[in-house]
């Protein structure tokens, strides 16, 4: 049997949802795989929603908003773009970034809506089923996705993405405008750090572990694991319990 992907779409009320309705009124046909959640603005899409959709088995997730400059709420889609950009960078770490898409469909673009959905459905069909969908999800990827979701939900990433437009387009608290390239550097290293830290946390949920075993399991250099452990301990997210011989064993708080 052909693979029929499960696709979830988040549509903004004013443009893309209206565009989807127009596709209907115009009887434009597209594949029946998509299920839609209506929100008022694409800027409402919390990164968590996309990760959760993937976690519960979506083969693809598409976010649609008004064209840039045409947002019903002035600039909500610019915020959506920044958040989605972060989601994609995170998902790249587990090779899932091609399962999500952000695009713009206006209220008058019924044909475009049908086309975007058809293309995305075909694209996901070609990719094949999500390794974490179905009855036998890949545990390792699922754990890594959880780490990503936790990392993106943490205040560090949310503060960075929430302030991105202000500090790269206007100024930071010191009155300086931060170069986008410089910002991206900071952003990318924060993504990798937070991802690894949360992988450690996810792993420690199972059992208490040593730095060495964490390093081996997560395939991260032990010295890097140690740095993360120090940070996580200072944040009060982990602590060490008993010693195995002279090796400290860490657990999640």
């Amino acid at each position: 049997m052909d693979f029929e992907p499960k696709i979830l779409g988040f549509l903004c009320n004013w443009c893309s949802y209206a565009g989807a309705d127009l596709a209907g009124v115009s009887r434009m046909q597209y594949p029946p795989n998509i299920r839609v959640i209506r929100v008022m603005c694409s800027g409402r899409i919390d990164p968590q929603f996309i990760f959760e959709a993937l976690r519960v088995g979506a083969d693809g997730v598409i976010v649609l908003g008004c064209h840039l400059g045409d947002c019903h709420y002035l600039e909500g889609n610019y915020e959506a773009e920044k958040k989605f950009d972060m989601v994609k960078r995170f998902l790249k770490l587990i090779n899932f970034d091609n399962r999500v898409r952000l695009d713009w469909v206006s209220a008058s673009e019924g044909a475009r809506y049908a086309q975007v959905i058809t293309e995305f459905t075909d694209h996901i069909k070609a990719l094949g089923p999500s390794p974490i969908g179905g009855d036998n999800p890949d545990k390792k990827i699922l754990n890594n996705l959880k780490a990503i979701e936790d990392a993106a939900s943490g205040d560090r990433m949310r503060a960075l993405v929430g302030r991105e437009r202000k500090i790269t387009e206007q100024e930071n608290v010191y009155g300086e405008q931060v170069d986008l390239e410089k910002f991206n550097k900071v952003f990318d290293s924060a993504i990798v750090e937070e991802y690894q830290r949360h992988r450690i946390l996810v792993s420690l949920e199972e059992d208490t572990k040593s730095i060495k075993s964490l390093a081996a399991e997560l395939e991260i250099d032990p010295s890097v694991v140690l740095e993360h452990i120090v940070c996580l301990k200072s944040r009060g997210q982990i602590d060490f319990g008993e010693f195995m011989g002279i090796t400290p064993m860490f657990f999640k708080m």
Partner: peptide, 21 residues
């Protein structure tokens, strides 16, 4: 009611009524 603040709030304190998390 666009909800951007809710999706952005660094500590998930803001609630978007009728479109809550």
């Amino acid at each position: 009611g666009c909800g951007v603040c809710g999706a952005t709030c660094t500590n998930h304190a803001i609630i978007i009524r009728h479109f809550t998390d």
